[in-house]
Every structure is written in C-alpha cells, then in structure tokens.
Design a protein around this nucleic acid. Structure first.
Lengths: 202, 202
DNA sequence: CGAGCGCTTGATTGAGTTCAAAAATCGTGG
DNA sequence: CCACGATTTTTGAACTCAATCAAGCGCTCG
C-alpha cells in the first residue's frame, strides 16, 4: 500500500545506492497533518509532492466561494501546480492534506540535479507525460460524459477512494452537486450496479 | 502572422545555424490541405505538429457521435496527442486541418536528437509545461465557469479565432450548443459587451 | 445527549438542450 | 454581379438534467 519515494525511484529509474545518497540531501521527507494547506491559490508553487502515504488533494475556489476538487493524490502519486512551479505564475489551485500523509517534497534544485544524471534521462519527461495523460482524460470526461458515466469512470479508476473520501468531495471532483451524485448512485443501485459497497436488495 | 519553425527554434533556444542544419533532416515541412485528418481517435499518434501557418484542431467523438473540440492550434502552436505519442496508447482524439495549413512534423527521432543538444535542455520541458498549463486552465474553466464566462475567456484568449472559425465550433470547444452560444452572445450584446465584431445600437 | 456533519429525499428553479423553423451569410457557377 | 443552394446563426417553445432550497435522518464525537 505505502511506497517509499526511494523505492519508487529505484524501480522507475534503476538508480544506484550511491546516486540516491547523492540526491538525498535535496529530498525532504515530511509528515503532513490532515488539513494542512501546502499551497494556496494565487501563491507561487515552489515544491512538488510525491505522496508516500495518505491523501492530498488540489482544488480551486471560484468567485462564488465554491470549491472544486481538481485532483486526488493518494499514495504513489504526484501533486503540484506544474504551471506555477515552472513559470512562476500564481497557482491555479490550493493543495492540502485530506488525510494525515507522508510525502517527499521536491523543489527546483532536486529537478535540476536529476536532470544531470543519465539514468534520469526521461524520468522527468515520463512524469510530465503522465500528468498530461491524466489531464487529457479529465477534459474528455468533462466534455463528453454524463454525470453517471463520470462517476462510473471514477470508481473504476480510483476504487479505494470511494471509501476514503466523502461523497460530496467525489461529487465536487465530478463537477456535480452532492445531491446529484446521491441520485446518480440511487439510480445505479436500482439498475443493479455494484460499486465498492452496495446494499443487496431484500 | 506566420512564423517559421526555424525562427521559433532560434528565438526559443538560441540554436546555431549548423545545429539547425544537423537536425533539419529530422524535420518534415508539410502543407496540409483543409479537412485532412492527421490523427484518428484510437490510432497511435506518432507525430507532433508545430503549426507555422493555418489552423489545426483536435476533437473527440463520443458514443452518440457528437463532436467535441478539444483544442485549436493556430500559427505558432503545438498539437498532438502527447499521451499516445509517448506511451503508445490509442489516441483520445482526432486531429485535422480546419484551414489549409503549413506545419513542421516532428517524430520521436527529432525529440531524441534534440535531447542530446545542450541548448535544448529544458526546451522539451518548456513545451510540456506549457501544454500542462493550457490543459489545467481548460479544466478550471470547464469546472468552475458559466457558459458566458467561458466564452469571454475564449475571446480574450484567442481573439482572432472568433473570426476564423464558425460559432458552432467555438460552442463545441466551450462545451455548449450553438444555440446556447448564440443566446449568450445576444445577452452580452444587450449588456453592451464588445467582442471582435459588434453591431452598434441604432 | 445534543451539535454538527454527511447523506438522502422531495419540491422547485434554472441554465442549457432539443426540436423546429426562419433569417442571415457564404460560396459558387452561370 | 446576381441567383441559388448550402451552411450558419438566430429565434421561439417545450423540455431535461442538474442545481438549489429545504427538511429529515443517522452517525459520530465532544
């Protein structure tokens, strides 16, 4: 379940012990208490996080103070405002911890360092492409899929999250209201769909 | 208006004449006739395009055969399914030419080549980050903004496109119907908003 | 136990869709 | 240059999906 950043690097890049030792000073391992805000909208993002354990999330707050969940980052995933981090622009969203978490904190120095190491050629690129992949899928979903289809996609993509985050937050991620999600689920139950938890008919 | 890929590389990377000459064989300059399809959904994307002149676009077609415009790529922009290109997965969208266009066609060999040149360190990264930036902004818009706000954002972001593509296609990009966009515009006119073209009151 | 939070349900509202048709615009060939 | 057909845009009316507003229920935690 939990994966350490070190092991992650090892399996993804085949880095050696001593190479890791060299970059260790550039990595900060940090425990994040639930509800801690790591990045504020409009601030500049100077760190990117790799989640070893727990759950971070990002969200925007619109003019009407409504919260929209952009991304969930459970264990073994990355989160950060890449745009702000790279271009120094104001962040488009908040990042905070929804569960007590343990993360590896990486800053610009870390990425500069790894870009000089041959084994890491393509590692950054891979992360960025994967990020693009997720964003692209998200856009497709938002544009082309109904509330029900988006929910089904969500549960298949992140089955364990349905148990870890409240329904209103999943609704927010899907771009619908909690009430609507409740009704979508009711309808799915009627149609005999089984998600993670499901009440059997009498 | 038109920018050549060569000049683009020059200004972005400070590449020398001879460095350009070295990579020239890896670049294909190609004229694309209007309506030519460059990538089909579900196919694997093996090329990325830099638009020198003209207008490409990408779009998905959903289960109900509805078309959703994902991206417009006018001169000096990039287009391609990065996910498919990098991971070899089936493409999430079509790419075609909406106007007769001139593009630089770049394949994996090109990117491998430039990654070995010091002046290009960070060039790829910059392109990818910029792509992420656009996707992220798009997601924020789709999640948090009304049809009217999305349209206003569009005209300010791509003022000249409002003259080059039909309204129904902009509507598709915004995720609304042409009828809705027509009404949004009518309402904006009533409120005295001036886009690119606007009829003065009598 | 009671206050607060999350989930559900019902009633109502509303933004945007659908369907249909008219009006405006564009393109092309005579 | 004009005419004609095709495409695009606009308008109207009915409708739909999801949002909003408003209770009510159940659970947990202080």
């Amino acid at each position: 379940m939990t994966i350490e950043f070190r092991d992650y690097l090892q399996t993804k890049t085949g880095i050696t012990e001593e190479q890791y030792a060299q970059m260790e000073p550039l990595i900060v391992y940090r425990k994040i208490a639930k509800n801690t805000i790591l990045l504020r909208q409009e601030a500049v993002c100077s760190e990117v996080y790799f989640v070893e354990h727990g759950l971070l999330r990002s969200y925007t707050v619109d003019e009407e103070d409504k919260l929209h969940v952009i991304q969930f980052a459970p264990e073994e995933s990355w989160i950060g405002d890449r745009n702000s981090f790279y271009f120094g622009e104001p962040a488009l969203f908040f990042i905070d911890a929804y569960e007590d978490s343990e993360v590896a904190v990486l800053d610009a120095r870390f990425f500069e360092h790894i870009n000089k190491i041959p084994e890491f050629a393509g590692f950054q690129s891979r992360i960025l492409h994967n990020h693009i992949r997720l964003l692209q899928i998200r856009i497709n979903m938002l544009m082309a899929a109904s509330a029900e289809a988006r929910y089904l996609d969500f549960v298949s993509r992140y089955p364990n999250l349905t148990l870890r985050v409240p329904q209103w937050m999943i609704a927010s991620y899907l771009g619908i209201t909690p009430e609507s999600l409740s009704r979508v689920r009711k309808e799915l139950a009627r149609k005999n769909f089984r998600g993670d938890v499901q009440i059997s008919p009498p």
